[in-house]
Write a protein that binds this DNA or RNA. Structure first.
Lengths: 250, 250
DNA sequence: GCAAAAATCAATCATTTTCACTCAAAATAA
DNA sequence: TTATTTTGAGTGAAAATGATTGATTTTTGC
């Protein structure tokens, strides 16, 4: 059983039962106690759970992206630079789509306030958008706890009612051959449709996303421009012929 | 059974019953008396309870829990009572609609967790619902900053896709002649449609809402049952012939 | 009221469980 | 192949547990 599988299982169990015992996890995953301990340590560092004697307990946080707190501040700086650049692409009068995701959230403080209309499926975005008095529409559909995103069939149908000047999203993988990918099929479909409904599409991604492939395909590279923080020479060669890339430097 | 589990259980029991006997805890947790004693000692040190001969008692001061400290006002107490009663009306397997509003939010901790489906237009509800792992669908549409509600044409269209066993909402005015009313026309339309899509409809209202009239009409009195905290004799006469009223007392 | 009986208590100790840490083997990547 | 990562077993330390003891409190019977 692979590490991400175990992590997923642990979090799933934790969500259901509130607490899990280490011994149960050992039996369930058929791995050693050491491995489970390491898993728990990692997940605790990422603020996904709280370790307790004999196991782990769910922590009741607020509506916050766990991965936000998990990432280092350097990473957050990069994200913010990328987000800032992306936000400046938005012009007065635009209607834009903001996909769920922590990098996209960082765009909101930099958006031009007046005369823009935002459509989003990101529950995390809502508060920041309303605080800035930006005209905001939320997609309807199933609320996914993990990523705080609205997804599912209803979400697709809901999204179809809009058209956008620009759309912005994060992805998990960017690959010359396989294009943009993300782990969740449902989220991939939403992103896919958002791109097709937009005049221009932008993918916000730090350098770790390049050459990665996740499970579900969103679209080919040429369908969206990439905004990133760094790109080595090899990568530039592989990608620049297939799509537009803007590298934002500090 | 892990230590935090026991602690949680003890506090839970204490909150419900006021006092617990050590022997009961021993039987319940299937641990030794020593362990329970240690638990009680620790919890007393943390000011979560008071030890008494033979067991433990809830302490009546404040700050035994964050939720305690936040619910200071008498008004909130009333709301919570009303909400608690309403939540108990929900049965396993129900699909319900929860309208935006603070009283309705208070229902969420009391809802049966499993096998229910919730549809809502209340952004404030989302966090609490997801924390409880309740299957949640959000209506799509315009996000209104003031009331943190999804409203507008899109919301109505989005809502039409669902059918409910029960729906719950707050209102601003209840009047024998003018029925249920609220200040915002758009919100009124949502509530109206929610009622028409439900087998049963419930209005949660404290006593200050009676004989009030707000701008926009939602529906006639007979379309929804009222759950309230108090009702004087005159009011009972005026309303009880027109609709079902449940008075929840302390 | 008073003393014996019963119940509850705090304190201690031996045992068991869980812990963090290390190291070497295995799996994976370069 | 050589590096790097992941894994599983072993170690002594730390924590949690259950039984026991004798002291203290409450209840009972008169």
């Amino acid at each position: 059983m692979l590490t991400p599988e175990r992590h997923k299982l642990i979090l799933q169990l934790l969500k259901e039962k509130g607490v899990v015992k280490i011994q149960d996890l050992v039996d369930l995953t058929e791995t050693s106690e050491s491995t489970i301990r390491r898993d728990l340590t990692q997940l605790e560092e990422g603020k996904y759970l709280k370790r307790i004697h004999g196991g782990a307990a769910r922590l009741k946080g607020k509506l916050q992206e766990p991965s936000m707190s998990e990432k280092s501040s350097k990473n957050l700086q990069q994200k913010r630079q990328i987000a800032h650049y992306a936000a400046n692409l938005v012009e007065e009068g635009d209607s834009i789509y903001l996909d769920a995701g922590s990098t996209v959230t960082e765009m909101i403080p930099f958006l031009p306030a007046k005369e823009i209309v935002v459509v989003t499926n990101g529950l995390m975005h809502i508060q920041a958008l309303l605080e800035r008095n930006i005209k905001t529409f939320l997609i309807g559909g199933f609320a996914k706890e993990q990523t705080k995103a609205i997804i599912g069939r209803g979400a697709l149908a809901s999204l179809e009612n809009y058209r956008f000047d620009k759309c912005f999203m994060g992805v998990n993988g960017i690959h010359p051959q396989f294009g943009f990918t993300t782990p969740d099929q449902d989220e991939a479909m939403i992103k896919q449709m958002a791109i097709s409904l937009s005049r221009e599409a932008f993918v916000l991604a730090d350098d770790t996303k390049f050459s990665e492939i996740a499970f579900a395909k969103i679209a080919e590279l040429h369908t969206a421009a990439i905004i990133t923080n760094e790109l080595n020479e090899d990568q530039r060669e592989s990608y620049s012929s297939k799509t537009t890339i803007k590298v934002v430097t500090a």
